[in-house]
Design a binder for these strands. Structure first.
Length: 555
RNA sequence: GCCCUCGUAGCUCAGCGGAUAGAGCAGAAGACUUCUAAUCUUUUGGUCGCAGGUUCGAUUCCUGCCGAGGGCGCCA
């Protein structure tokens, strides 16, 4: 029995007990209240629930008494072999191994879809991340969000959500002009403008556009600037796309900020024009000192924001508002932004836009803030001039090691990359630990096939070793881990799970042979074990896939 | 000054209000004529930054303080 069903069954029994005691199902008992968890110690059984502790308050009874009353009722469930009461009132559940083994066959049947659930089915999600200016290469500051955002998109999809991963291209404004001027100067061999973009990539872009436009020197400055800026923009955006693809990061929508500024209505208005009107219709806009303001303080912002300056020009905030309205108009149920800690000042503003647009800032929009990454303890910043580019980082450490190490910590946890560790092929490098476990499942499968261990007939009752119960319980937990990761927007939970699962697998491998030794005969346990082995490989593969990490068959 | 995030073993980090706070590495001791030893087994190591509060129960929730990082524009 899978943990979700088990939790539901326990909740049913507990609620029945509450009704008997109090005459009503108040409070009702939900599966979440069961708090089914895998105990930290093997002697505590396969699953533990603190339901008796949780009911103690409402029922006014001691947790131990409630646990004593529930114990025989839980033991009556077919898949449960034994229930022990421990500590202050925990119910420690040991499953019937002969039934537990069925999990392995079920996993092979589900294949790539094992781990999928329907908790978010019917929910459409817009997930925006990276969203770098197309004026330079992606650097380490974008790398964590790229890894995290892509994994989150995969996890949300596994939970049934319909996700659009979106990259917002800031291709409008003075930074683009400065970028164009910088490349133009490089192309013509002139002195760079003040505060120019610098670096080898500017020189390369300059060379490329000089070849593309041989008559550049004869054009007027304005004409040349437009040619160079647009060409360099598309070249740079292409480079960003390539970097992300090689990092296994996929975007469904590349949204150009320019779409917001062009006239797109019959009245000759842009989406930005319309956004001001729409917010005004909702009653959150006012005029003061010649400027147009949004009363964002209505929604928790620390000050109101100007959306249109006294000189008639829109602020960047106007584009943000128009962009949010675009997402709203495209019909998403939930809009998620992934921002670095250096942008956390925008959180209130973004939420205020949602509120001003008539949405619920607490429900319809989520802003995830992530801490920055350091390498070997050195803080990286543009000011310090020690920025590392994504491409260099990837070539140095490899996509797998980089994706995995960035994906195994929660976003709000400060993270230090240690290149020495990531390049090592030992146990202290978790990605190798997990990938090695997967490769081992394939080696074992190859050996089993060669020896005639086919997996048929499959008798789950022979999977009776302690390490087999541990492994099977871990495998059964995978769908719940993925669903939980999606619900909390924390894909790192999948990585941590895979490390635990790999440990369980290695311990099992150490204790139980799949292919008989020497000339020993093939028994029913060997057939069952190859099924368990292959099921483990499937789950490791599915989990690594959610993290955008490859699952090699040989290492 | 105000706001946000973080503070857990020597190091890198987990920990949905529950049991004696965990993992890997590092340190110590073991296991390869046997399916991949990139593995496994045993072991050393903690005032969960500090102080209060809520709770039957707090590393977890709330408040204050200390420390680290980041942010505060009619810039983009």
């Amino acid at each position: 029995m899978d943990p979700a069903s088990l939790a539901w069954r326990i909740a049913q029994l507990a609620e029945k007990y509450v009704v008997e005691q109090t005459g009503s199902a108040n409070p009702p008992v939900a599966a979440d209240d069961v708090a089914l968890e895998r105990p930290k110690k093997a002697e505590f059984g396969d699953w533990a629930t603190s339901i008796a502790l949780k009911l103690a308050g409402p029922l006014g009874a001691s947790p131990r008494d409630i646990a004593t009353a529930l114990q025989p009722r839980l033991e009556a469930i077919d898949d449960i072999a034994r229930v022990d009461i421990a500590g202050p009132g925990f119910l420690n559940i040991t499953l019937d191994t002969s039934r537990l083994g069925q999990t392995a066959a079920q996993i092979l049947q589900a294949g790539e879809t094992y781990g999928h659930s329907d908790g978010l089915a019917g929910t459409t999600v817009n997930l925006e991340f990276v969203s770098a200016n197309p004026t330079g290469p992606l650097h380490i500051g974008h790398t964590r969000w790229a890894a995290l955002g892509d994994s989150l998109a995969r996890v949300l999809r596994a939970a049934g959500a319909d996700v659009a991963a979106e990259f917002y291209i800031n291709d409008q404004g003075s930074q683009m002009d400065l970028f164009g001027e910088s490349v133009l100067a490089a192309a013509l061999g002139q002195d760079p403008p003040e505060d120019a973009y610098q670096g080898a990539y500017i020189a390369e872009l300059g060379k490329a556009v000089a070849e593309e436009f041989p008559t550049l020197a004869e054009m007027s400055h304005d004409e040349a600037l437009v040619c160079v800026r647009e060409s360099a923009y598309h070249r740079q955006l292409g480079a960003i796309r390539t970097s992300l693809e090689e990092f296994n990061v996929h975007f469904d929508v590349w949204f150009s900020e320019r779409q917001l500024h062009v006239m797109s209505t019959p009245e000759g208005l842009s989406l930005v024009d319309r956004s001001v009107e729409r917010l005004r219709e909702q009653g959150h806009v006012f005029d003061e000192d010649g400027a147009v303001w949004v009363r964002t303080t209505d929604f928790g912002d620390d000050k109101d924001r100007v959306i249109r300056r006294a000189n008639g020009a829109y602020t960047y905030f106007a584009a943000d508002a128009a962009y949010y309205l675009s997402k709203k108009d495209r019909g998403f149920d939930l809009t998620i932004y992934l921002l670095g800690a250096d942008h956390h000042g925008y959180v209130h503003r973004l939420k205020a836009i949602a509120g001003a647009a008539g949405d619920d800032p607490a429900v319809d929009i989520e802003v995830l803030i992530g801490q920055l990454v350091s390498v070997n303890g050195a803080k990286l910043s543009k000011r310090a001039g020690n920025i590392i580019e994504l491409d260099d980082l990837r070539e140095w450490l490899g996509t797998d090691a980089l994706r995995y190490s960035l994906g195994r910590s929660p976003a709000d946890s400060p993270l230090t990359l240690e290149p020495d560790v990531l390049l090592s092929k030992t146990n202290d490098n978790p990605v190798f630990y997990v990938q090695y476990a997967h490769a081992r499942t394939h080696q074992v499968a190859r050996n089993a096939e060669a020896a005639g261990v086919t997996g048929e007939p499959f008798d789950p009752a022979t999977l009776s070793h302690a390490t087999e119960a541990e492994l099977l319980t871990a495998l059964a937990d995978f769908p719940r881990v993925v669903a939980h990761a999606a619900e909390l927007r924390e894909p790192h939970r999948v990585a941590r799970y895979l490390e635990d699962l790999s440990g369980s697998y290695h311990r099992w491998y150490d204790a139980c042979r799949v292919t008989p030794k020497g000339d020993d005969p093939i028994g029913p346990e060997h057939h069952a074990r190859v099924v368990l082995n292959n099921a483990t490989g499937q789950v490791l593969r599915n989990g690594l896939g959610l993290l955008g990490v490859s699952a090699p068959e040989r290492m």
